[in-house]
């Protein structure tokens, strides 16, 4: 790829190449030192060899970036080989509860041991050419930190998405009420994402419990608009395709009014006013009758008196 090089960059280039050569030459020493740094040590807890190996890979990637003269470019192709690895390391740190700032300073701490090695390469550690090389290395390590920060942020997004999914699952338990009868008490707003989860977990429960009847109880759903009604009808239709009958229960009077006002046709959907009514229906359809024991008890009492 042709990159237009400004004058300033052109001056930087020899230093970048020097840094690249140095990173190649001292890869082993750098990897050994990094293995003892907080970031590598805490991620690769099982074996030090793994930490050293990871350090070698990162060093090689930095050398490639410097060789390409792109020490300040977080999109440099040289980073591609270690982006996944850095992401896993950042994610692993994030899981232990350390915040992004903490990860960033752990990455920043990697610079010092390398700078030491680099200065030692020069007969006069503070001569101008040594300073130039150190500046190039500092820029490069700063870029590495940005790359890690970027992967940390995307790891954070994934974490949020995963937690949201877990929340959905926790909020929609499927309960076995009786042989062949399962129920989902829905509580809260039923949006598209949640209704997908409800549908999937209900259908899975139908298979697992060999359910003939599935009750969707919407007592805890604050409002039913046409979108929610559509979700309910889809769930009912999917359950029916699998051979189970769905009953929607807990339609409060106000919601019944809304449904009528909106002109929503729940047509083919079987409804009951309460979860108890729905269960009674499911049981009677299976030939199970609920009868109070009191009659028998009263008869027994009468006998003793």
């Amino acid at each position: 790829m042709q990159v237009s090089v400004s004058e300033e960059n052109a001056e930087q280039e020899p230093a970048a190449y020097q840094v690249s050569a140095f990173l190649e030459r001292r890869r082993e020493q750098i990897a050994q030192r990094w293995a003892d740094a907080a970031l590598f040590r805490t991620v690769f807890t099982v074996s030090r060899d793994e930490a050293v190996e990871a350090g070698r890979a990162v060093t090689a990637a930095l050398a490639a970036v410097a060789a390409a003269g792109r020490i300040d470019d977080i999109r440099a192709s040289g980073f591609a080989s270690v982006r996944d690895q850095l992401g896993r390391m950042a994610a692993s740190r994030a899981r232990t509860g350390i915040d992004p700032d903490g990860v960033a300073s752990e990455v920043a701490a990697l610079r010092e041991p390398v700078t030491e090695l680099l200065r030692a390469e020069f007969p006069e550690p503070y001569a101008p050419e040594a300073q130039e090389a150190v500046v190039a290395l500092t820029v490069l390590m700063g870029t590495l930190r940005l790359v890690v920060m970027e992967t940390t942020l995307s790891a954070g997004e994934e974490l949020i998405a995963r937690q949201r999914e877990q929340l959905h699952e926790v909020a929609t338990p499927v309960i076995k009420l009786w042989d062949s009868t399962v129920a989902v008490p829905l509580i809260g707003t039923l949006d598209s994402a949640r209704s997908q989860v409800v549908m999937e977990s209900l259908l899975d429960a139908i298979v697992a419990e060999r359910a003939r009847y599935a009750i969707l109880d919407i007592t805890g759903v604050p409002t039913v608009d046409s979108l929610v009604a559509q979700h309910l009808m889809k769930t009912v239709a999917a359950a029916r395709l699998m051979g189970a009958e769905c009953i929607v229960s807990g339609i409060r009077p106000a919601i019944a009014q809304t449904i009528v006002h909106l002109g929503i046709d729940l047509g083919t959907v079987l409804t009951r006013s309460s979860l108890a009514d729905a269960l009674a229906y499911a049981l009677s359809e299976q030939g199970v009758e609920i009868a109070p024991l009191r009659a028998a008890g009263a008869a027994a009492d009468a006998g003793t008196r």
């Binding site: 139908i206 359910a211 003939r212 239709a237 999917a238 029916r240 395709l241 699998m242």
Partner: peptide
């Protein structure tokens, strides 16, 4: 389940067919 969800989304509810779990 995945097939049932997809069919419903597709708009195909097979109203004339009797269904069973297994």
């Amino acid at each position: 389940p995945a097939v049932a969800i997809t069919l419903v989304e597709l708009g195909l509810t097979l109203p004339g067919l009797r269904t069973a779990l297994d």
